[in-house]
């Protein structure tokens, strides 16, 4: 018997193939691997189908796009502004330098950022805390530091509002926190190190 056609193989997978086809399959490794390929494809498609998004997931993605997508600057979101810095003279009230604590206010939330321990290759860790006095609002979600070019850094925010981004290279970043429908953006976060000139 010749090799099985694709049609035969697909029928076999569905348990509908003729018995000669099964007999051929038992003897022919080439057709068996063709069958395996189709089985994997179907199983992979089933797997993805099971992961179809639900309303809640799509809603969060929609919110993300509304808040951060192109041309949506008019949408309500909280732009964090600096309210306090531990530095003697907050240079132009911008961002974080090593050792300083910067406190931002955004809607009902307060965000604190400081630079922690030195990491490898002149990177630092950025430690943050998000807090609110509003008991109806939860804390959690994700905090991201986005450089103008290069790698976006992300950290989960735990239930106490704490997060930690290790190995952040010095530079200028935009910070974004999102949790459910809520988004906070911090512009011009300057990450510095002690040993900078």
């Amino acid at each position: 018997m010749d090799h099985l056609t694709e049609a035969h193989i697909i029928d076999l997978i569905e348990g509908e193939g003729p018995s000669e086809a099964e007999a051929h399959l038992a003897e022919c490794s080439q057709c068996r691997s063709a069958q395996r390929l189709w089985q994997e494809r179907i199983e992979s498609l089933r797997e993805m189908s099971r992961e179809s998004l639900d309303d809640a997931e799509l809603h969060r993605l929609r919110v993300l796009y509304r808040q951060l997508g192109p041309g949506k600057d008019q949408a309500p979101r909280w732009i964090a502004r600096l309210v306090r810095s531990s530095a003697a003279a907050p240079a132009a009230a911008r961002g974080v330098a090593s050792g300083e604590i910067m406190e931002y206010s955004a809607g009902p939330y307060t965000l604190m950022l400081r630079v922690g321990a030195q990491g490898s290759r002149s990177t630092v860790s950025v430690i943050g805390q998000i807090a609110t006095n509003d008991r109806d609002r939860g804390i959690g979600g994700t905090f991201a530091l986005t450089p103008p070019n290069g790698r976006v850094r992300l950290s989960d925010v735990d239930q106490f509002g704490e997060f930690n981004l290790p190995e952040v290279a010095p530079g200028s970043y935009r910070g974004t926190w999102w949790f459910g429908d809520q988004i906070m953006v911090v512009h011009d976060v300057e990450i510095g190190t002690d040993d900078e000139p």
Binding site: S44, E47, M48, S49, E51, S52, L53, E57, L58, R62
Partner: peptide, 14 residues
């Protein structure tokens, strides 16, 4: 954007 994620969200999760 929503269509994009309906299509590829399941890929990402898989």
């Amino acid at each position: 954007w929503v269509v994009l994620w309906r299509r590829y969200g399941p890929l990402v999760k898989s």
